[in-house]
């Protein structure tokens, strides 16, 4: 037992070193911009860069649209699967796992061929329709996480009983879905939303290949051309990710308290 404890400590210490040192290294590097002393110059430069503001804003907007479209697609599906179409569950689960199986770069490759300017549905034809395509590609990326989160939430409440109770009281299904079911799975949806946000905000492959002015390609561009700003951006990205995960914990924790009788 003692040996086991020592081994555990060694694993934890090596792990901590591996995970913390790059964070320290990155932070330290981001402070080196001014010669001979530490400063926040790199951050100042980054925040003052209009392209940073523009791309970060653009990606935030895309992320929010992705969450909205994702919720609209996933919530009714999960609800009806649970309530009336349980036979479709294996098929739906298989589809939601597809984005984990097919690499993002392959999916976007398919889009570029299928929806190019000479196709029946030339989504890549204009900037706005390409934005739409980008949102759909992000929905596809986020689908496994979003569906898992919502479906788990739906299973935790008894959808059938809630629905029948509401029907008994004379409610129609839009009322049931939006006033009864949605509030009860809000925590699950929010978890899925934050996870989606964290995934989408710095996404590179889709945005780059669809040629959209998103944060991910901007990061890549800065990385290729500047020295200290990338480190500052990495620190910022890490903080954004941390904030999203922290919010998931907060939301999930609130739900646990509510669920306990």
């Amino acid at each position: 037992m003692k040996q086991q404890k020592i081994g555990s400590w060694i694993a934890i210490i090596i792990g901590t070193l591996y995970f913390v040192v790059p964070l320290i290294g990155t932070f330290e590097f981001s402070l080196r911009m001014r010669r001979g002393e530490y400063s926040f110059d790199a951050y100042r430069v980054v925040f003052a860069d209009p392209r940073f503001q523009a791309t970060f804003g653009y990606s935030t907007l895309m992320a929010l649209l992705t969450i909205a479209v994702g919720v609209l697609i996933v919530v009714p599906t999960s609800y009806w699967i649970q309530l009336r179409l349980p036979k479709l569950r294996p098929l739906v689960e298989f589809i939601t796992l597809m984005p984990l199986v097919i690499p993002a770069i392959v999916i976007v490759f398919g889009y570029l061929r299928l929806y190019n300017t000479s196709s029946i549905l030339p989504l890549t034809g204009s900037a706005h329709s390409t934005d739409l395509l980008l949102v759909f590609s992000y929905v596809a990326l986020a689908l496994p996480y979003m569906y898992r989160a919502v479906d788990t939430g739906m299973r935790a409440i008894d959808v059938r009983v809630l629905t029948e109770a509401a029907e008994n009281l004379g409610a129609r299904w839009p009322t049931i879905l939006f006033r009864v079911i949605l509030p009860n799975v809000r925590a699950a949806i929010l978890s899925g939303a934050f996870l989606t946000f964290a995934t989408v905000i710095g996404e590179f492959t889709m945005a780059s290949l669809l040629n959209r002015p998103a944060f991910g390609p901007y990061l890549q561009l800065i990385g290729a051309n500047r020295a200290y700003e990338p480190a500052a951006l990495a620190v910022i990205a890490f903080l954004v990710t941390w904030a999203c995960m922290g919010l998931i914990n907060v939301v999930g924790h609130g739900k646990q308290i509510k669920a306990a009788p």
């Binding site: 790059p22 710095g202 590179f204 990061l219 990385g223 990338p230 480190a231 951006l233």
Partner: peptide, 8 residues
């Protein structure tokens, strides 16, 4: 993604 590369 990209920020991880910067960190390393």
């Amino acid at each position: 993604g990209v920020p991880l590369a910067f960190a390393f």
